[in-house]
Design a protein around this nucleic acid. Sequence first.
DNA 1: GGATGTGAATGTCTTCACAGCT
DNA 2: AGCTGTGAAGACATTCACATCC
Lengths: 206, 206
Amino acid sequence: MRKIAESTVRRLSLYLRFLEEFQSQGIATISSEALATRGGTTSAQVRKDLSFFGSFGKRGLGYSVPELVGKLRDILGLKRTYQVVVVGAGKIGSALAQYPGFGQRGFHVAAVYDADPKKVGADWNGLVVQDVQHLEQDLARAPVDIAILATPAAAAAQVSDRLVQAGIRAILNFAPVQLEVPAHVVVKNVNMAMELEALSYALRNR
Amino acid sequence: MRKIAESTVRRLSLYLRFLEEFQSQGIATISSEALATRGGTTSAQVRKDLSFFGSFGKRGLGYSVPELVGKLRDILGLKRTYQVVVVGAGKIGSALAQYPGFGQRGFHVAAVYDADPKKVGADWNGLVVQDVQHLEQDLARAPVDIAILATPAAAAAQVSDRLVQAGIRAILNFAPVQLEVPAHVVVKNVNMAMELEALSYALRNR
DNA sequence: GGATGTGAATGTCTTCACAGCT
DNA sequence: AGCTGTGAAGACATTCACATCC
């Protein structure tokens, strides 16, 4: 399959969100123009993004909303559920583990881990914080697709290595460090401070 | 000033992080090559990124670490502190308001707001949750640079309007909705579910 | 008629490669 | 000799504009 730009994937994600909105409003058909307006882009961009994956519309008519929802979920790999573990039961780990948006989109948080004995055993709406020592044996027993890394910076590299060793193939990294992983592992970084710095830059130059 | 790509700004942020690391290790001078390796990019990219803002290096030698740290902090607008408010005292709002990384980088969380009377008055390490009704009068009294929006999706649009009305010029939006704001307001969106979807896409296609 | 799908044109970002300084 | 700074080339992404089909 041809390589698709990350920006395109982000937009597809967005389109899907809007389409689900339209769908819940009972709208059956939508034009690239209408989708574009909703998402702050252009109709040509919408059509181009979709064209990488096929021809889903009807000329003169637009796109069938339910059909396009299905295609996008398929393209994005969202027709299955993913098992997710959160490592790091601090404030951010706690917020992420209990974030309802994940479950709604098929990402099931199977477990949360922490190294601090004072946190281990805590019950978060039925999700019990596990000792990170059991990470490997748990992952061996019940495979997991994605790890969310929310440890302090100092622990991140080591935990990342252990996750990789245990066979994880995707990491969403909230720790402010650059992880080194083998090529077959996908990492996406989310760095709150960096987002604020981008705003700082934008504020400065106006 | 010429328009700079968002990707460039992100990298500058990263370089700054690495340079501070090098600085704390007492490294006085660094080459574009070394910085690039640390950040997973190329030396030409580093030099080009910096060249948009001036010539900070010495040929044959590299860059003075402390000097470049200063320049980058200047470029990114980080030589001042920013007043930040968090709106939404749920799990994510709580995590963000107490995130130590913000303070370390000059972003001072001045207040947290929520609409839920059960949350108002809660004390988070000396930060007391305020009633969102007081938002406008507080902002009028003590101006704030950046708002972090961490409300449920349903409330986000309305809160955003009130923030804009009250003179906010930058919003970091964690609610999964597309905000509509006037051109003079900068918005950056962080959408956890979308990050996972990008991982899902990456996992699917391999 | 109306909206898609898509080559071609344009615009933007990255990489190359080397002249120019230290 | 070594490494920066930067035009020029190349790769990539977006926008245009129109033939095509429903």
